[in-house]
Design a protein around this nucleic acid. Structure first.
Lengths: 189, 189
DNA sequence: GTTAGCATGTAAGGAGTTACATGATTTT
DNA sequence: AAAATCATGTAACTCCTTACATGCTAAC
Protein backbone atom coordinates (compact mmCIF):
# COMPACT_ATOMS: atom_id res chain seq x y z
CA UNK A 1 0.00 0.00 0.00
CA UNK A 2 1.10 3.48 -0.81
CA UNK A 3 2.11 5.41 2.25
CA UNK A 4 1.97 9.17 2.35
CA UNK A 5 5.64 9.62 1.62
CA UNK A 6 5.54 7.76 -1.63
CA UNK A 7 4.60 11.04 -3.26
CA UNK A 8 8.18 12.01 -4.03
CA UNK A 9 8.91 8.53 -5.29
CA UNK A 10 6.00 8.62 -7.69
CA UNK A 11 6.90 12.10 -8.89
CA UNK A 12 10.52 11.14 -9.50
CA UNK A 13 9.59 7.97 -11.37
CA UNK A 14 7.12 9.91 -13.46
CA UNK A 15 9.47 12.74 -14.30
CA UNK A 16 12.38 10.49 -15.16
CA UNK A 17 10.17 8.80 -17.70
CA UNK A 18 10.73 11.84 -19.91
CA UNK A 19 14.42 11.11 -19.85
CA UNK A 20 17.39 10.81 -17.46
CA UNK A 21 17.98 13.75 -15.12
CA UNK A 22 20.18 14.73 -12.20
CA UNK A 23 18.90 15.74 -8.77
CA UNK A 24 19.23 19.48 -9.11
CA UNK A 25 17.08 19.56 -12.19
CA UNK A 26 14.57 17.11 -10.77
CA UNK A 27 14.04 19.45 -7.85
CA UNK A 28 13.31 22.38 -10.13
CA UNK A 29 10.80 20.44 -12.21
CA UNK A 30 9.24 18.97 -9.08
CA UNK A 31 8.76 22.35 -7.45
CA UNK A 32 7.05 23.63 -10.54
CA UNK A 33 4.84 20.59 -10.61
CA UNK A 34 3.54 20.41 -7.07
CA UNK A 35 4.53 24.00 -6.65
CA UNK A 36 1.45 25.60 -5.08
CA UNK A 37 3.06 26.59 -1.85
CA UNK A 38 5.20 23.56 -1.23
CA UNK A 39 8.86 23.60 -2.08
CA UNK A 40 10.87 20.42 -1.89
CA UNK A 41 14.29 20.73 -0.28
CA UNK A 42 17.52 18.97 -1.18
CA UNK A 43 17.48 17.50 2.26
CA UNK A 44 14.56 15.36 1.30
CA UNK A 45 15.20 14.83 -2.40
CA UNK A 46 18.74 13.47 -2.31
CA UNK A 47 18.12 10.90 0.44
CA UNK A 48 15.02 9.80 -1.46
CA UNK A 49 17.06 9.32 -4.64
CA UNK A 50 19.68 7.32 -2.77
CA UNK A 51 17.01 5.14 -1.28
CA UNK A 52 15.55 4.54 -4.71
CA UNK A 53 18.97 3.52 -5.99
CA UNK A 54 19.30 1.10 -3.08
CA UNK A 55 15.89 -0.42 -3.66
CA UNK A 56 16.62 -0.73 -7.36
CA UNK A 57 13.96 1.62 -8.70
CA UNK A 58 16.59 3.87 -10.25
CA UNK A 59 20.05 3.37 -11.66
CA UNK A 60 22.90 5.76 -12.26
CA UNK A 61 23.43 6.58 -15.88
CA UNK A 62 27.01 5.78 -16.83
CA UNK A 63 28.10 9.11 -18.22
CA UNK A 64 29.43 7.79 -21.49
CA UNK A 65 28.38 10.80 -23.55
CA UNK A 66 30.27 13.79 -22.25
CA UNK A 67 33.51 13.39 -20.32
CA UNK A 68 33.93 17.14 -19.98
CA UNK A 69 30.97 17.46 -17.59
CA UNK A 70 31.54 17.81 -13.90
CA UNK A 71 30.65 14.89 -11.63
CA UNK A 72 26.91 15.05 -11.50
CA UNK A 73 24.79 12.02 -11.01
CA UNK A 74 22.22 11.31 -13.65
CA UNK A 75 19.42 8.91 -12.82
CA UNK A 76 17.24 6.74 -14.97
CA UNK A 77 14.32 4.45 -14.23
CA UNK A 78 14.96 0.70 -14.10
CA UNK A 79 12.57 -2.08 -15.05
CA UNK A 80 11.62 -2.39 -11.39
CA UNK A 81 11.06 1.36 -11.34
CA UNK A 82 8.67 1.21 -14.23
CA UNK A 83 6.78 -1.60 -12.56
CA UNK A 84 6.59 0.38 -9.32
CA UNK A 85 5.36 3.44 -11.18
CA UNK A 86 2.57 1.44 -12.68
CA UNK A 87 1.72 -0.17 -9.38
CA UNK A 88 1.50 3.23 -7.66
CA UNK A 89 -0.53 4.75 -10.48
CA UNK A 90 -3.04 1.91 -10.29
CA UNK A 91 -3.77 2.49 -6.62
CA UNK A 92 -7.33 3.73 -6.38
CA UNK A 93 -7.58 3.91 -2.57
CA UNK A 94 -7.65 6.95 -0.28
CA UNK A 95 -3.95 7.67 -0.80
CA UNK A 96 -4.75 8.63 -4.38
CA UNK A 97 -7.27 11.25 -3.25
CA UNK A 98 -5.15 13.32 -0.89
CA UNK A 99 -4.23 16.71 -2.26
CA UNK A 100 -0.56 16.23 -3.12
CA UNK A 101 -0.92 12.64 -4.18
CA UNK A 102 -3.85 13.47 -6.38
CA UNK A 103 -2.02 16.26 -8.16
CA UNK A 104 0.97 14.10 -8.99
CA UNK A 105 -1.19 11.23 -10.13
CA UNK A 106 -3.28 13.53 -12.24
CA UNK A 107 -0.24 15.02 -13.93
CA UNK A 108 0.74 11.55 -15.09
CA UNK A 109 -2.75 10.46 -16.07
CA UNK A 110 -1.63 10.17 -19.67
CA UNK A 111 0.17 7.00 -18.74
CA UNK A 112 -2.75 5.09 -17.18
CA UNK A 113 -5.96 3.49 -18.36
CA UNK A 114 -9.17 5.44 -18.57
CA UNK A 115 -10.68 3.04 -16.03
CA UNK A 116 -8.11 4.03 -13.42
CA UNK A 117 -8.48 7.69 -14.26
CA UNK A 118 -12.23 7.53 -13.75
CA UNK A 119 -11.90 5.72 -10.46
CA UNK A 120 -9.44 8.26 -9.09
CA UNK A 121 -11.45 11.24 -10.30
CA UNK A 122 -14.69 9.80 -8.91
CA UNK A 123 -12.99 8.83 -5.68
CA UNK A 124 -11.76 12.35 -5.12
CA UNK A 125 -15.08 13.86 -6.06
CA UNK A 126 -16.92 11.62 -3.61
CA UNK A 127 -14.44 12.51 -0.90
CA UNK A 128 -14.90 16.23 -1.48
CA UNK A 129 -18.66 15.92 -1.52
CA UNK A 130 -18.59 14.07 1.80
CA UNK A 131 -16.52 16.85 3.32
CA UNK A 132 -18.95 19.39 1.96
CA UNK A 133 -21.96 17.63 3.43
CA UNK A 134 -20.30 17.25 6.81
CA UNK A 135 -19.23 20.88 6.99
CA UNK A 136 -22.58 22.20 5.88
CA UNK A 137 -24.41 20.04 8.42
CA UNK A 138 -22.03 21.32 11.06
CA UNK A 139 -22.63 24.90 9.95
CA UNK A 140 -26.35 24.55 10.48
CA UNK A 141 -25.90 22.93 13.86
CA UNK A 142 -23.61 25.66 15.11
CA UNK A 143 -25.30 28.70 13.68
CA UNK A 144 -24.41 30.49 16.89
CA UNK A 145 -21.72 31.92 14.57
CA UNK A 146 -21.45 35.49 15.73
CA UNK A 147 -18.11 35.68 13.99
CA UNK A 148 -18.39 37.36 10.60
CA UNK A 149 -14.87 36.49 9.53
CA UNK A 150 -15.01 32.82 10.47
CA UNK A 151 -18.31 32.59 8.62
CA UNK A 152 -16.83 34.27 5.54
CA UNK A 153 -13.91 31.86 5.60
CA UNK A 154 -16.26 28.90 5.73
CA UNK A 155 -18.32 30.34 2.90
CA UNK A 156 -15.27 30.81 0.72
CA UNK A 157 -14.02 27.35 1.60
CA UNK A 158 -17.30 25.74 0.66
CA UNK A 159 -17.36 27.64 -2.60
CA UNK A 160 -13.82 26.55 -3.47
CA UNK A 161 -14.60 22.93 -2.85
CA UNK A 162 -17.83 23.17 -4.83
CA UNK A 163 -15.80 24.62 -7.67
CA UNK A 164 -13.37 21.72 -7.56
CA UNK A 165 -16.25 19.27 -7.58
CA UNK A 166 -17.57 20.87 -10.76
CA UNK A 167 -14.08 20.70 -12.27
CA UNK A 168 -13.87 17.01 -11.47
CA UNK A 169 -17.35 16.42 -12.90
CA UNK A 170 -16.34 18.08 -16.15
CA UNK A 171 -13.22 15.96 -16.33
CA UNK A 172 -15.18 12.80 -15.66
CA UNK A 173 -17.62 13.67 -18.42
CA UNK A 174 -14.77 14.40 -20.77
CA UNK A 175 -13.18 11.04 -19.98
CA UNK A 176 -16.45 9.27 -20.65
CA UNK A 177 -17.00 11.18 -23.86
CA UNK A 178 -13.52 10.51 -25.14
CA UNK A 179 -14.35 6.95 -25.99
CA UNK A 180 -18.02 5.89 -25.96
CA UNK A 181 -17.22 3.92 -22.80
CA UNK A 182 -17.32 0.17 -22.56
CA UNK A 183 -20.66 -1.68 -22.89
CA UNK A 184 -21.00 -2.20 -19.14
CA UNK A 185 -20.83 1.49 -18.22
CA UNK A 186 -18.95 1.77 -14.90
CA UNK A 187 -21.14 4.47 -13.33
CA UNK A 188 -20.92 3.33 -9.71
CA UNK A 189 -17.94 1.68 -8.06
CA UNK B 1 8.85 35.51 15.72
CA UNK B 2 6.07 33.12 14.99
CA UNK B 3 7.37 29.78 13.89
CA UNK B 4 5.30 27.44 11.79
CA UNK B 5 4.16 25.38 14.72
CA UNK B 6 2.57 28.27 16.54
CA UNK B 7 -0.55 27.62 14.52
CA UNK B 8 -2.10 25.33 17.10
CA UNK B 9 -1.15 27.72 19.86
CA UNK B 10 -2.87 30.63 18.15
CA UNK B 11 -5.95 28.56 17.40
CA UNK B 12 -6.23 27.34 20.98
CA UNK B 13 -5.81 30.82 22.42
CA UNK B 14 -8.38 32.15 20.00
CA UNK B 15 -10.94 29.44 20.65
CA UNK B 16 -10.61 29.59 24.41
CA UNK B 17 -11.45 33.26 24.23
CA UNK B 18 -15.06 32.20 23.72
CA UNK B 19 -14.93 30.43 27.05
CA UNK B 20 -13.13 27.63 28.90
CA UNK B 21 -13.00 24.25 27.18
CA UNK B 22 -11.43 20.83 27.60
CA UNK B 23 -9.13 19.17 25.09
CA UNK B 24 -11.62 16.84 23.49
CA UNK B 25 -13.95 19.66 22.59
CA UNK B 26 -11.13 21.92 21.45
CA UNK B 27 -10.09 19.26 18.98
CA UNK B 28 -13.56 19.07 17.49
CA UNK B 29 -13.85 22.82 17.07
CA UNK B 30 -10.32 23.01 15.72
CA UNK B 31 -10.92 20.34 13.12
CA UNK B 32 -13.99 22.18 11.94
CA UNK B 33 -12.06 25.41 11.79
CA UNK B 34 -8.96 24.45 9.84
CA UNK B 35 -10.81 21.40 8.64
CA UNK B 36 -10.23 21.43 4.91
CA UNK B 37 -8.32 18.19 4.73
CA UNK B 38 -6.27 18.49 7.89
CA UNK B 39 -7.34 16.74 11.04
CA UNK B 40 -5.53 17.41 14.26
CA UNK B 41 -4.75 14.35 16.38
CA UNK B 42 -4.74 14.03 20.15
CA UNK B 43 -1.09 13.16 19.92
CA UNK B 44 -0.34 16.69 18.96
CA UNK B 45 -3.08 18.59 20.77
CA UNK B 46 -2.56 17.31 24.31
CA UNK B 47 1.21 17.85 24.38
CA UNK B 48 0.60 21.34 23.01
CA UNK B 49 -1.88 22.08 25.79
CA UNK B 50 0.54 20.80 28.42
CA UNK B 51 3.26 22.97 26.99
CA UNK B 52 0.99 25.99 27.11
CA UNK B 53 0.24 25.27 30.75
CA UNK B 54 3.96 25.06 31.47
CA UNK B 55 4.69 28.31 29.71
CA UNK B 56 1.81 29.99 31.49
CA UNK B 57 -0.37 30.82 28.51
CA UNK B 58 -3.20 28.68 29.87
CA UNK B 59 -4.37 27.69 33.31
CA UNK B 60 -6.53 24.83 34.50
CA UNK B 61 -9.98 25.89 35.54
CA UNK B 62 -10.63 24.78 39.10
CA UNK B 63 -13.82 22.83 38.63
CA UNK B 64 -15.84 24.59 41.27
CA UNK B 65 -19.15 24.37 39.41
CA UNK B 66 -20.01 20.71 39.02
CA UNK B 67 -18.55 18.05 41.27
CA UNK B 68 -20.47 15.32 39.52
CA UNK B 69 -18.42 15.64 36.32
CA UNK B 70 -15.72 13.17 35.53
CA UNK B 71 -12.09 14.28 35.72
CA UNK B 72 -11.72 16.32 32.59
CA UNK B 73 -9.33 19.19 32.38
CA UNK B 74 -10.81 22.51 31.43
CA UNK B 75 -8.47 25.22 30.22
CA UNK B 76 -8.75 28.96 30.21
CA UNK B 77 -6.53 31.72 28.87
CA UNK B 78 -4.30 33.61 31.30
CA UNK B 79 -3.22 37.23 31.11
CA UNK B 80 0.00 36.07 29.47
CA UNK B 81 -2.08 34.03 27.06
CA UNK B 82 -4.10 37.05 26.03
CA UNK B 83 -0.92 39.03 25.51
CA UNK B 84 0.57 36.23 23.41
CA UNK B 85 -2.60 36.01 21.33
CA UNK B 86 -2.39 39.69 20.57
CA UNK B 87 1.30 39.48 19.79
CA UNK B 88 0.74 36.61 17.37
CA UNK B 89 -2.22 38.32 15.74
CA UNK B 90 -0.15 41.46 15.16
CA UNK B 91 2.53 39.61 13.23
CA UNK B 92 2.36 40.78 9.66
CA UNK B 93 5.35 38.84 8.29
CA UNK B 94 5.41 35.81 5.98
CA UNK B 95 4.24 33.48 8.73
CA UNK B 96 0.87 35.21 8.60
CA UNK B 97 0.48 34.43 4.90
CA UNK B 98 0.98 30.70 4.86
CA UNK B 99 -2.20 28.78 4.20
CA UNK B 100 -2.98 27.38 7.64
CA UNK B 101 -1.69 30.38 9.52
CA UNK B 102 -3.66 32.71 7.33
CA UNK B 103 -6.91 30.85 7.85
CA UNK B 104 -6.61 30.86 11.63
CA UNK B 105 -5.65 34.50 11.71
CA UNK B 106 -8.48 35.40 9.41
CA UNK B 107 -11.02 33.57 11.55
CA UNK B 108 -10.02 35.76 14.49
CA UNK B 109 -9.84 38.99 12.51
CA UNK B 110 -12.68 40.39 14.56
CA UNK B 111 -10.26 40.82 17.42
CA UNK B 112 -7.61 42.91 15.62
CA UNK B 113 -7.30 46.40 14.21
CA UNK B 114 -8.29 47.18 10.68
CA UNK B 115 -4.71 48.23 10.01
CA UNK B 116 -3.42 44.76 10.83
CA UNK B 117 -6.20 43.13 8.86
CA UNK B 118 -5.33 45.15 5.78
CA UNK B 119 -1.65 44.37 6.06
CA UNK B 120 -2.26 40.65 6.34
CA UNK B 121 -4.78 40.61 3.49
CA UNK B 122 -2.52 42.65 1.26
CA UNK B 123 0.49 40.58 2.23
CA UNK B 124 -1.22 37.39 1.23
CA UNK B 125 -2.53 38.88 -1.98
CA UNK B 126 0.93 40.06 -2.98
CA UNK B 127 2.36 36.66 -2.20
CA UNK B 128 -0.24 34.91 -4.34
CA UNK B 129 0.28 37.33 -7.21
CA UNK B 130 4.03 36.70 -7.13
CA UNK B 131 3.45 32.97 -7.33
CA UNK B 132 1.10 33.51 -10.21
CA UNK B 133 3.60 35.60 -12.15
CA UNK B 134 6.38 33.10 -11.57
CA UNK B 135 4.31 30.13 -12.64
CA UNK B 136 2.96 31.85 -15.73
CA UNK B 137 6.46 32.91 -16.77
CA UNK B 138 7.61 29.36 -16.29
CA UNK B 139 4.69 28.06 -18.32
CA UNK B 140 5.67 30.19 -21.29
CA UNK B 141 9.31 29.17 -21.03
CA UNK B 142 8.50 25.47 -20.95
CA UNK B 143 5.73 25.27 -23.48
CA UNK B 144 7.20 21.99 -24.58
CA UNK B 145 4.23 20.72 -22.49
CA UNK B 146 3.02 17.79 -24.49
CA UNK B 147 1.20 16.60 -21.41
CA UNK B 148 -2.49 17.46 -21.57
CA UNK B 149 -3.18 16.51 -17.98
CA UNK B 150 -0.29 18.40 -16.43
CA UNK B 151 -1.32 21.42 -18.46
CA UNK B 152 -4.92 21.13 -17.28
CA UNK B 153 -3.74 20.90 -13.69
CA UNK B 154 -1.69 24.05 -14.09
CA UNK B 155 -4.61 25.83 -15.68
CA UNK B 156 -6.95 24.89 -12.87
CA UNK B 157 -4.33 25.86 -10.30
CA UNK B 158 -3.82 29.27 -11.85
CA UNK B 159 -7.56 29.82 -11.96
CA UNK B 160 -7.97 28.89 -8.31
CA UNK B 161 -5.27 31.28 -7.22
CA UNK B 162 -6.70 34.04 -9.38
CA UNK B 163 -10.04 33.45 -7.71
CA UNK B 164 -8.49 33.76 -4.28
CA UNK B 165 -6.79 36.99 -5.31
CA UNK B 166 -10.17 38.41 -6.33
CA UNK B 167 -11.64 37.28 -3.02
CA UNK B 168 -8.85 39.05 -1.14
CA UNK B 169 -9.31 42.18 -3.22
CA UNK B 170 -13.00 42.27 -2.37
CA UNK B 171 -12.22 41.85 1.30
CA UNK B 172 -9.64 44.62 1.18
CA UNK B 173 -12.12 46.93 -0.47
CA UNK B 174 -14.74 46.04 2.10
CA UNK B 175 -12.28 46.79 4.91
CA UNK B 176 -11.47 50.15 3.40
CA UNK B 177 -15.13 50.97 2.84
CA UNK B 178 -16.17 50.00 6.35
CA UNK B 179 -14.79 53.14 7.83
CA UNK B 180 -13.85 55.95 5.45
CA UNK B 181 -10.23 55.12 6.29
CA UNK B 182 -7.97 57.40 8.25
CA UNK B 183 -6.82 60.74 6.70
CA UNK B 184 -3.45 59.31 5.68
CA UNK B 185 -4.89 56.48 3.60
CA UNK B 186 -2.59 53.45 3.99
CA UNK B 187 -2.66 52.32 0.38
CA UNK B 188 0.91 51.08 0.17
CA UNK B 189 2.89 49.41 2.92
C1' DG C 1 40.64 35.92 -8.97
C1' DT C 2 36.54 36.33 -6.80
C1' DT C 3 31.69 36.16 -6.74
C1' DA C 4 27.48 33.76 -8.18
C1' DG C 5 25.25 29.80 -9.20
C1' DC C 6 25.44 24.72 -10.11
C1' DA C 7 25.56 20.35 -7.75
C1' DT C 8 25.63 16.99 -4.00
C1' DG C 9 25.29 15.71 0.26
C1' DT C 10 24.80 15.17 5.96
C1' DA C 11 23.10 16.12 10.78
C1' DA C 12 19.93 17.83 13.80
C1' DG C 13 15.64 18.78 14.85
C1' DG C 14 10.57 20.30 14.27
C1' DA C 15 5.86 19.13 13.78
C1' DG C 16 2.69 15.98 13.58
C1' DT C 17 0.67 11.09 12.88
C1' DT C 18 -0.27 6.32 14.28
C1' DA C 19 -0.66 3.08 17.45
C1' DC C 20 -0.86 1.99 21.97
C1' DA C 21 -2.65 2.27 26.75
C1' DT C 22 -6.11 3.52 30.07
C1' DG C 23 -10.30 4.43 32.26
C1' DA C 24 -14.89 6.87 33.04
C1' DT C 25 -19.72 7.52 31.49
C1' DT C 26 -23.59 7.00 28.78
C1' DT C 27 -26.45 4.30 25.88
C1' DT C 28 -28.48 0.00 24.46
C1' DA D 1 -23.74 -6.19 31.37
C1' DA D 2 -21.86 -4.87 26.89
C1' DA D 3 -20.89 -1.54 23.52
C1' DA D 4 -20.15 3.01 22.18
C1' DT D 5 -18.31 7.24 23.03
C1' DC D 6 -16.07 10.60 25.93
C1' DA D 7 -11.61 11.80 27.62
C1' DT D 8 -6.61 11.90 28.38
C1' DG D 9 -2.38 10.69 27.59
C1' DT D 10 2.57 8.38 25.84
C1' DA D 11 6.10 6.34 22.60
C1' DA D 12 7.77 5.48 18.38
C1' DC D 13 8.17 6.82 14.05
C1' DT D 14 7.76 9.48 9.53
C1' DC D 15 8.43 13.00 6.67
C1' DC D 16 10.33 16.95 5.91
C1' DT D 17 13.03 21.42 6.68
C1' DT D 18 17.01 24.11 8.14
C1' DA D 19 21.49 24.71 8.54
C1' DC D 20 25.78 23.19 7.64
C1' DA D 21 29.64 21.46 4.67
C1' DT D 22 31.88 20.91 0.28
C1' DG D 23 33.62 21.69 -4.22
C1' DC D 24 33.13 22.61 -9.15
C1' DT D 25 32.28 25.92 -13.06
C1' DA D 26 30.97 30.16 -15.32
C1' DA D 27 30.86 34.99 -15.46
C1' DC D 28 32.62 39.49 -14.41
Amino acid sequence: MARRGDTIELAVLGLLHEGPMHGYELRKRLNLMLGWGRVLSYGSLYPALKKMLRTGLLSEVTTTTAVTRRPRIVYEVTEAGHAEFERLMSEVGPSAWEDDNFDIRFAFFGRTDMEIRLRVLEGRRTRLQERLTRVQAELERTQEEVNRYAAELQRHGVESVEREVRWLSDLIQAERGERPASPEAPAQS
